[in-house]
Design a protein around this nucleic acid. Sequence first.
DNA 1: ATTCCACGGGAATCGGTGGCAA
DNA 2: TTGCCACCGATTCCCGTGGAAT
Length: 353
Amino acid sequence: MITDPGVFDNEYLPRELKHREGPVETLAKAFEPTIDGYPADNVLVSGGSGVGKTVLVRYALARLDEAAAINHAHIRCLGITRGQILRTAIDEYDSTIDFTLNTSVDTLQEKLSDAVISPYIIVLDEADGIYETGALEDLFAIQRVSVVAICHDAERWLALATPEVRAVMHRELELGRYGVDELADILQDRVDEGLPPGVITREQLRTIADECAGIARIAIQSLRAAAELAGERGHERILDEDVADSYERACHRIRQANLRSLPFHHNVLYGILQVKGELAASELHRCYEALAEDVYYGRDLTPIGPRSRRNKLSKLREYDLVEFEGPPQHRVYSVRDPEIVPEIEVSISCEGD
DNA sequence: ATTCCACGGGAATCGGTGGCAA
DNA sequence: TTGCCACCGATTCCCGTGGAAT
């Protein structure tokens, strides 16, 4: 049923960004100075999950590309280091600049500073934890570099900022949740581009939009899931029952992709929880230790200690894969969705069963 | 009031990479 | 080629914190 699967990709950039005309203009204004060779204004873009922060910035940069050849980079900052941010920033500006794995981060900063001779816009996506890296100061120290920081909560982000950082964040852009009709409009564009005409009604799009509570990413994946389900069930067009089951499948797919993007240790911990259902912290650690030798056998990795496991578990929670419940000393870990399975086979039978 | 326990921040340490001089 | 060193990122070690149990 799907004629162009590309329209459901995260990377897909719509021709027109519906219901974000104001923010698009704000970004265009912020980028305008680059056309005359001056640095762009720094912008802080904030808003909840799936309100289209990333796509907004990508869209505005694509428009800028049409007007002038301005260097820009897009860096996902979640869980990466100061060095990785600087390396990416250097590489995206000029891939001929060489550095190695053990080049000091201070040197990297100097290299970037020396290299940048024209306006350079660096988008720091998922920049909620950017202060821990220290990379922000590195970038702001470079005159022609400007930053678009994307975060969830602007107030918290600015509260953590130094006065220097606050002083150079010239523009703030807060995106609210889409309304049902707005989101239905956005879905309609994807329908027009990626599905045969007439397979879904406006009312069904509104149902999808409503179910997703304004979160565009889930809505778009729900639309895709509804079309897939209709296809699998041999329906000529998308029926209400396909729409009804689409949200589950969309969430499932997003979480499954999240898990796949995480390294082995995370998958081991997840696998234990997925099989056991619910575990107290001490039980989880006991299971991990009981299994570790088998699971890690033949791999170029060694089992990690309890402290690292806690960090991995926090990460799993950030990715909406694992839940914590109860106070620290009685914390219970469980998976959000037992249907999501890890990449690895964790054939679990911990002692104590 | 005291003990217990897991959490999580921060410092120390480890294993690996790559430059450099002998 | 070898040994040494600086450095990185990942991990471990150490320890203060705070809520629940005793």
